[in-house]
Amino acid sequence: MVANRPGFLVILRRNGVVSFIIISSNKAGISFKNKIDLLFDLEVFTKAENAEMELLSVFRNKLLHDISFSSLLSVVQQLDSSLKTKFRGYFEDKGSIDDEVHCKRALANIFLKNIQTIRFKVQHLRELNQSKNELIQENLKINLQHIDVFYDFTDEICIKIEQSNLEHPDLANLAADLLVSIEKFQKLFSGVEKKVFNFDVFASLFGLRKMDEAQNAELRLLHDAYFNARQKKS
């Protein structure tokens, strides 16, 4: 891959292991398997869900991209023992792994299971987006209330000063009048809801994690080392 190829770098850490993923701006630049791996690394898929997706991808890739495979049985015969064991888990009662029709039904079961997983993930994403929207709208509403009260306060003060006779000996009356406005808006400000920003709630919705300085430094070193290595190869 050329170092200056359009795209962006994703740095992931799972169980202490750091991995680098290049996402190309070209839609054809990431394979079906890489998409599954990326969703697993991003913790969208669980380990079990990832295994089901990968099992389906084995059949998909061989039947779509390898002309030597023309039937499900031809694919099954090339599977290792662990994949065959996983595949058997989707057979109906008395189903045989040596029967093409039974294999088709088992593959259909895997497909339907993956569809259910995707539907659940989409539903979860929609609920998560709703929660994000509610959180943002709630904070925006409070901020707008503060802005409105503050604007009304400054506007009233400016009007009173503008309409007063600053050269009149009774200028002290203006100070008293301004004090009335200040006290009024103090009560209004105290009546506006005050909400302390909760980082933990925000982070849980947006998938953010706090990083200390050591972790930030480590991430910068990994980033620099990766791109230096790519530049040398190019």
Results as ranks from 00 to 15, higher is better:
K35Y: 03
I36H: 00
I36R: 02
I36C: 00
D37N: 13
L38M: 06
L38E: 00
L38N: 00
L39D: 04
L39V: 05
F40Y: 13
F40D: 01
F40N: 01
F40W: 12
D41N: 08
L42Q: 03
E43K: 14
F45S: 00
F45R: 00
F45I: 02
K47Y: 14
K47V: 06
K47Q: 04
E49G: 09
E49T: 09
A51T: 04
E52L: 11
M53Q: 07
E54M: 09
E54L: 07
E54H: 05
E54Y: 03
L55A: 02
L55N: 01
L56G: 04
L56Y: 13
L56T: 06
S57F: 07
S57M: 11
F59E: 00
F59R: 00
F59W: 00
R60I: 12
R60S: 11
R60G: 05
N61F: 14
N61T: 09
N61Y: 10
K62P: 05
K62I: 07
K62V: 09
L63R: 03
L63E: 02
L64D: 07
L64W: 10
L64P: 14
L64T: 11
H65V: 07
H65Q: 09
S68N: 06
S68L: 14
F69M: 04
F69Y: 10
S70H: 10
S70A: 11
L72C: 02
L72P: 00
L72N: 01
L72S: 01
S74D: 03
S74R: 14
S74A: 05
V75K: 00
V75E: 00
V75P: 00
V76S: 02
V76P: 01
V76G: 01
V76T: 02
Q77H: 12
Q77A: 14
Q78T: 12
Q78F: 13
Q78R: 12
L79A: 07
L79P: 04
D80E: 14
D80F: 14
S81Y: 14
S81V: 12
S81E: 15
S81M: 08
L83N: 05
L83E: 02
K84M: 09
K84T: 13
K84R: 13
T85M: 13
T85I: 14
T85F: 15
K86C: 04
K86W: 12
F87L: 10
F87W: 08
F87P: 01
G89C: 11
G89S: 06
Y90C: 07
F91E: 13
F91R: 14
F91C: 12
E92Q: 13
E92D: 10
E92G: 12
E92F: 13
E92R: 14
D93Q: 13
D93R: 10
D93L: 11
K94W: 03
G95P: 07
G95M: 06
S96V: 03
I97M: 12
I97Y: 05
I97H: 06
D98C: 05
D99A: 10
D99I: 10
D99L: 08
E100P: 07
V101C: 07
H102T: 02
C103Y: 06
C103T: 05
C103G: 03
K104F: 11
K104E: 03
K104Y: 11
R105F: 13
R105Q: 09
R105H: 10
A106E: 04
L107G: 02
L107C: 01
L107H: 05
